[in-house]
Design a protein around this nucleic acid. Structure first.
Lengths: 105, 105
DNA sequence: ACTTACCGTAAGTCATCACTTACGATTCGT
DNA sequence: ACGAATCGTAAGTGATGACTTACGGTAAGT
C-alpha cells in the first residue's frame, strides 16, 4: 500500500504547488523554487518527500537535476480512489433502495 | 477548490480507517469507533473533519447519527487526479519524444 | 586552477494537529 | 419520570512536520 505515502505527500499545499509547476514538464530545482513563497532548501525537502512517495522522478542533467511527475505514482492514487468511489456509490444506492422499500421493516 | 480539504482529510491514517469502515454502508459513531485504536471522541473529531471536507454525510437516526461516504466528495478528488494524470502523461510522452529526437540539439 | 552556479543535507525553531479526559445535551428504554 | 446510552464539544498535552539559516559537494564557465 504505497498510495498512502502519495496521499500524505499531496496533503501539503506547497507540495501541490510544486506538482502544479511540473504539469507542463520536467524542471530543475531552481526553476521550481523561483517565485515561490518558501526557500529553495524547503523545496528540495519537499521534492525529497514527493520522490519517496513515488510521485516524482529525477534525472540528473549535468549541473542540475530535472524533476518530473511519475505517472505511475499518480495512477496508484487514482486506482485507490476508484475503488473507494465504487464502494461509496454501491453503498449509497443500496441505502437509497433500503429507504425506498420502507425502512428495515 | 474543495478537493484540497478532501485530500488533507484523507492524509490521516485514522481517517482513512474510518472511511474504510464506511465502505460497506452507513454506520453509527459507536460502531465505527468499536475496536479502533483511538477513543470515541477522537473518532467524532475525525468525522467532523471528514464531513467538513465533503467526504461524509450524516443522517440523524433517533438516538444516533449515521455517517456514510459522500460520493460527490470522492468524485471531486477523482477529477483532480484525472487532470493531474492527463497532464503528467502528456508531459511524460512529450519528454520521451524530445529525448528520442536526439535531445535539444 | 579558481570562481560561480546548482543542489542536497544538518541543526534548530515554531506551529499545527491528533489524542485524552471531562462535561453537557438529546434520545431510548422501563 | 428516571437511569442509561449515544454523541458532540472544551480544554490541555505531546508529537509530527514545515520552515529557515548554514554548510559541503559537484559541475560548469573563464
Amino acid at each position: 500500500m504505497d498510495y498512502e505515502d502519495a496521499i500524505t505527500a499531496l496533503a501539503d499545499p506547497t507540495r501541490r504547488e510544486i506538482i502544479n509547476r511540473l504539469r507542463g514538464g520536467p524542471l530543475p530545482v531552481s526553476a521550481i523554487a523561483a517565485d515561490m513563497a518558501v526557500s529553495r532548501p524547503a523545496v528540495s525537502q519537499h521534492l525529497r518527500v514527493l520522490s519517496d512517495a513515488g510521485l516524482l522522478n529525477v534525472t540528473p542533467q549535468g549541473n542540475r537535476r530535472l524533476y518530473f511527475i511519475a505517472p505511475e505514482g499518480v495512477d496508484q492514487l487514482r486506482r485507490y480512489l476508484d475503488t473507494l468511489w465504487d464502494d461509496a456509490l454501491g453503498a449509497f444506492e443500496r441505502a437509497a433502495r433500503e429507504k425506498a422499500k420502507g425502512g428495515s421493516k
